[in-house]
Every structure is written in structure tokens, then in C-alpha cells.
Nucleic acid binder design. Structure first.
Lengths: 216, 216
DNA sequence: ATGAACGAGATTGGATACAATCAATCCATG
DNA sequence: CATGGATTGATTGTATCCAATCTCGTTCAT
């Protein structure tokens, strides 16, 4: 489906889902040899993918001992969302006043993409469309490093987020929130849009925290 | 001097200084083969170090084309410091009220370490002691992910910071600021300590921005 | 019983070799 | 002369192999 140009990129995606699905449980060592074999690649691309995850705090590296899955407790999750709010608020604070009319049209198009995906109940499509919308918005800040950090934080919990989109009621609410956000953006109402973004986050944090608190 | 347990860790340090010194100039491709040879290692540890730098935004990766040194313009620098202020303010806001008397004693000891290093005019020692002080403070927040992000931001400009510490007048000012900070911490005065930390940042941003704006 | 020294097995770290891809040049063609 | 397509050299991506290190159980001395 989605093209993967390198093995490391493919492995990275696999690892994220393995961790989110609990196949690689918290605290567990990532044994490179067996995992690489089961993924059908050598250890080299696996190690490079692990370095990325280390940078995101998803795994912890001990030299000569290996990589261990970080445990994402509810405390951690709260911290991730707190960090997200610091960063996302700034992105909106800077970006919203800079939005052009063309930007707004483009953003509306992205919201429609999400709605279309939601109708077809394609969780993957919803996830990626939703992501495109929010990041298009963040990027209006013209702060690429800030956006990169926000992306890191999303990645740290992204794999869990699919669960949120699985329920139709959540999808409806999301679409309503997107529309409300668009209205606030059209009005260039910075504080309103920040508040809406915050509400949006809060919805998913509760779902995800339930998910990780009960051992699957 | 400092022990390096793996080649990748050593290469990572080398790379940071190479970038900071401009030996690896902005936009320039990092040719793995020749660089690895000149560092006396194979490409494997080099690539892993590059992945770390990619995560920090120090280099940009294009699949099948390679790693390119990100250019750190003054605009970028301003962005880095803006991000730092978002994150560091939070760390202090959460951490300062939690400081115990033992923490304060420990922090004072770290400040003394900086002063000792400053007297002996050992730039490297000043840099690392200064870093230890600030991060000990940040860690009082008990937000490890937040601290990790702050550390990333420091790393993104750390190599440049040595210049700041080279001038004795800057050292004096730094020590005065540290003492002022300690007083604010003893009073558990959150806003004051945030303001002092901000001033501390501003001092170095101007020095570093001059450094990178004029081609060496 | 306790703990230090040792060794076997497992695992990671790094070097080398080869495959895949890209970029730039050259040549053919219109 | 411009354009498009093959070709070659350079560079990256990955697999495989060997070296270095750690873990853990065993042994031995105290």
C-alpha cells in the first residue's frame, strides 16, 4: 500500500506497531537477531530504526546490552500530552495569524478528506488524513524545528491512536471539532483555536490512557 | 579524557564538533565512505551517529541520497531558543516548587564546580559543569521526556557555546547569574527563576548568532 | 554460607563485501 | 540545437561475518 523506500523505514513502522500492540512489551529487551530474522531483514536496518526510536524515547539503549522497550505509563502519557500542548499552542499562536485565505481553503480540503475517510470507516486513512490536517495547520507557523518536535510527540503515541478512531462516535466528535476549528481559524481567533486543539487532545488522552493501563 | 564506550558515541561527538567548527558546512553532503575513513571507523557506527543527529535536526536525511548538514541560520537559532524557552519554563514551573533543601545544597555545589572551572579557565570543564547545573535543575521537574527534549535543544547548539565561555567577562556574568538563580530557587520564586533562566539564554543567543552569521 | 574468580553461551558492536539506487555524462534522434 | 534515453561512476543500503562484551551459572577459597 504505502511505499517503503528503505528497509529501515519499513522496520520502523513495524516496530511502532509491535510496540503499540504490546508484542514488544515494556521493559522487554529487543533481541536484534531474532527480531531481524522475523522481519526478514538483517540487523543493520533494524539497528538504525532502533536509533530513531531511541531518539523519540520509545526505547532505551544501554551500550553493549541492547535496546529495551520503554514503558509508557499513564504518567508518561500525561507528560507527552503536556509537552504537546506546550509545543502545539506555540505553533498555533504563531501560525494562525499568518493563515492566508488559500491556506484556509487547503485546510478545509484536508478536513473533507478526513470526513470521506471516516465515512468509509478506513481507520488507517482517517489517521493519516487527520494527521495531514493538523500538521498543515502547525506548519503555518513557519517553525520547522517546532513542527518536527511535535511530530516526534505524535509518533510516540501514534500507534495507539488507531484505537480512538475505531469507534464511530469518536469520529463524529472529531469531525465536529474539526469544523469548529476551521471556523476559529477563519476568524483568526488564536485563543479559540488553541482551546479547541486542547480539547481535541484531551479526548484522545483518556482513550489512550485506558488502553495502556489495562494489560492487553 | 572522557571514556567512549562505543565507536558510535565517539563518532557522534566528533561529528558535533566538526559541524560546529564548520568543517562540515551547512548544506554539505556527509559522504560516509570518506568521513568514516578519516575518523578511523567503518560506515556502520557513522550511520548510527548520523541517525541520532537526524533526530536532533542537525542533519537532514534523503533516502538513497544521504545525509546533509542542516544549515543553522540565525532564524533557526532563534527558533531553537524559542523552543528552549517553552520547555525550560515548564521544567522550572513544575520543578522549582518541588526543590528540597538537599536539592538546593546539591545545586550550590554544582555552581561552585562551575566557578572553580571558570577560575582555571578550562572551557570544556566550564561547559560541562554549567550543563550539569542546569540539568540538575531541570530534572527536579520529574519530567524525563521534557528534560530529554531540552537536552536535544542544547545539543543542537552546544558546540557553539564554547565560544561564549571563552571570554572572561562572560564567565563573570554567568557566575553572577547562577548566584542570583540560586537565591530565587531558595525562595522558591518560580517566576523570578524563569526570568533569570531567560536572561541567561538571551546572553548566549546573541553571542552564538554573531558566531554563525559571520562565515569563519 | 558468602562472595570472588572464572568460563560458556548469548548478544551486541563493528568491518567488510555486495546489491541497489542515484546523478551526471554521453550519445542518438528529432 | 534541444531532448530523451542509455551508461557509467559514485554513493548509499543491506547482508554477512567476526570481534568484543555482557550475563549468568559454576567453582573454589575463605
Amino acid at each position: 500500500m504505502t511505499e517503503v523506500v528503505t528497509a529501515q523505514a519499513g522496520v520502523l513502522r513495524e516496530l511502532r506497531t509491535l510496540i503499540a500492540a504490546g508484542k514488544l512489551g515494556p521493559g522487554q529487551q529487543v533481541v536484534q537477531d531474532s527480531l531481524a530474522a522475523s522481519l526478514g531483514v538483517s540487523r543493520v536496518p533494524l539497528r538504525e530504526a532502533l536509533k530513531v526510536l531511541e531518539g523519540e524515547g520509545q526505547v532505551i539503549y544501554h551500550p553493549h546490552r541492547g535496546y529495551f522497550v520503554a514503558d509508557l505509563s499513564v504518567t508518561d502519557l500525561v507528560e507527552v500530552y503536556r509537552i504537546r500542548s506546550l509545543l502545539e499552542d506555540e505553533a498555533l499562536r504563531v501560525g494562525v495569524p499568518l493563515l492566508t485565505d488559500e491556506d484556509l481553503e487547503y485546510l478545509e480540503g484536508l478536513i473533507q478528506d478526513v470526513e470521506v475517510a471516516a465515512k468509509s470507516a478506513d481507520v488507517t486513512a482517517v489517521t493519516s488524513a487527520n494527521r495531514r490536517f493538523h500538521f498543515a495547520l502547525f506548519e503555518s507557523s513557519n517553525m520547522p524545528r517546532l513542527v518536527r518536535l511535535i511530530r516526534n510527540q505524535w509518533d510516540a503515541t501514534d500507534a495507539y491512536r488507531g484505537v480512538y478512531f475505531a469507534a464511530a462516535s469518536n469520529l463524529d466528535q472529531m469531525n465536529r471539532e474539526h469544523r469548529a476549528m476551521l471556523a476559529a481559524l477563519r476568524a483568526r481567533d488564536v485563543e479559540k483555536s488553541i482551546a479547541l486543539q486542547a480539547a481535541h487532545r484531551e479526548n484522545s488522552v483518556s482513550v489512550v490512557s485506558e488502553l495502556i493501563s489495562k494489560p492487553s
